[in-house]
Design a protein around this nucleic acid. Sequence first.
DNA 1: TTCATAATTGCATGTCTTTGCAGATATGAT
DNA 2: ATCATATCTGCAAAGACATGCAATTATGAA
Lengths: 122, 122
Amino acid sequence: MPDRKVVAKELAEIFKIVANPDRIRIIEELRAGEKDVKTLVEVLELPGPRVSQHLSLMRAHRIVEERRDGRHHHYSLTQPDMANWIIEGLDFVEGRLNGVSKVSITKARELWSAQKSNQTIK
Amino acid sequence: MPDRKVVAKELAEIFKIVANPDRIRIIEELRAGEKDVKTLVEVLELPGPRVSQHLSLMRAHRIVEERRDGRHHHYSLTQPDMANWIIEGLDFVEGRLNGVSKVSITKARELWSAQKSNQTIK
DNA sequence: TTCATAATTGCATGTCTTTGCAGATATGAT
DNA sequence: ATCATATCTGCAAAGACATGCAATTATGAA
């Protein structure tokens, strides 16, 4: 199979994994550092099993990694820059909108950009 | 609905649209400038209706735009930087792989980065 | 051991997405 | 008008995803 075809397929897979609102929120939540499942469940207000499923999928694709401490499972981003890359995608969201929800975007960009990762700064 | 939730949803939609090998190849093909459907079909070796469907979806989401010239429909990226953003995602593909397909990635990165857009350079 | 908490797994269900193929439109050439 | 080319639309089948809920495992505390 030609290189570009292979690579397009791999890229599509990454995009597919990120292409979910819950998972995006989880990734942005982990931007500030590792968190355990219960914390994620509370902060994001999502059902436990759902968060667990998402984490399991992302773990399988090495997007997050797990550190166990007693009965707490702490998750963190294996590639913290991914959180920034996702935020960059906001540029293209703005292009699609008819101006209305732009306020939300500006706010969210600030909120997410504010909490800088303690792992990524170089 | 809280801002971050709304934005995560919008972001997820963009990711969903890009999350397809054909569409990624189309976007990277359009990086060098506008092309008509037939050209895309030939270069990418995909069935015509399929390319048409992908273009129609991306048009609906304002990712590409159409310019008609007789019976030829020329498509181009509304936001050419998107092609670069997608390529950046390769960083996270590499993180997932066990070294094998890395050759393909390096090659593809070169191939795609080589053909610079005549619209994006600032 | 027994109980409570943290997290995961399994499964059924409903909903999108992808894909192929046939048929329909539109345009330009003869 | 007729034909060939370029492109699009519609539809059905297959496959992939998301979601809720019940059941299960693992750990620490009483």
